[in-house]
Design a protein around this nucleic acid. Sequence first.
DNA 1: ATACTTGCAAAACATTTGCAGTGAG
DNA 2: CTCACTGCAAATGTTTTGCAAGTAT
Lengths: 136, 136
Amino acid sequence: MATYRGKRKTPQRDAVRDAIAAAGRPLSAEEILAKARKEVPALGLATVYRHLRYLLDRKQVVTVEISGSTPRFEPAQLAHHHHFHCRECDRVYEIAECPFHGQPHAPPGFRVENHEVTLTGICERCARQVPGSRSS
Amino acid sequence: MATYRGKRKTPQRDAVRDAIAAAGRPLSAEEILAKARKEVPALGLATVYRHLRYLLDRKQVVTVEISGSTPRFEPAQLAHHHHFHCRECDRVYEIAECPFHGQPHAPPGFRVENHEVTLTGICERCARQVPGSRSS
DNA sequence: ATACTTGCAAAACATTTGCAGTGAG
DNA sequence: CTCACTGCAAATGTTTTGCAAGTAT
């Protein structure tokens, strides 16, 4: 396979990178495709994934896993933060606070390199609404 | 489709339930299949998924989502704990310690109902091995 | 020109469902 | 006997790869 090497500057690359950077929230692959197609209409989903993998390898983008949904992607250089997942509207929010001060604890011999915290519940927006009413 | 209803006691059901209960760590569907096949060799993966869905619906089992890997399943009635994901062998371990003392912080108006903490790194077992080697 | 990138289609995976045969009650 | 449950294969839905054509340098 002609592996993606990132040696050239192309409109597709910029479109994918910009889509992720411009959104104020983590996007799914399909959402990135939709946004990037405003710049490059012929863009294919495979190309989005290729750039995604490249950006993940270079640690310019990180994956945000959401229970029961497809992965989302966000810029990696954001300040350290965690996520809040609203079970009502399915939105994911950034949470600035980190419960760890220093390295998280693990059993003897385990080397901790990273940590992820996800809070689940009802977001401020949904908390104000009548249960059962519409959302978006 | 003949939906699974849980009305009958079968060896397959016991094998799946026991595999999850006996493992001291969350198992993937394939891991459950492998373990349960020691009891029921002809067991099919589809049946594992059917029982999994049933057990999840009944809240006897919970899903543990891991970034960059397939979901794992563990008994629902375990004491509060978190997880460690080894990036080398892909195993998931239980971590007893919780960084939160009291309710986690969230922006005003947000109602936190649950939280999840996942540490990533190298497990004790893999840390002892030559880098690049494999196990399971 | 060279060889990296792209889009499309097909392949890979993980999970779900259709079906007809099996077996629990 | 019934009909829930099972295994297999086919269907889904998502992500990856092969390839020939397009293009940045």
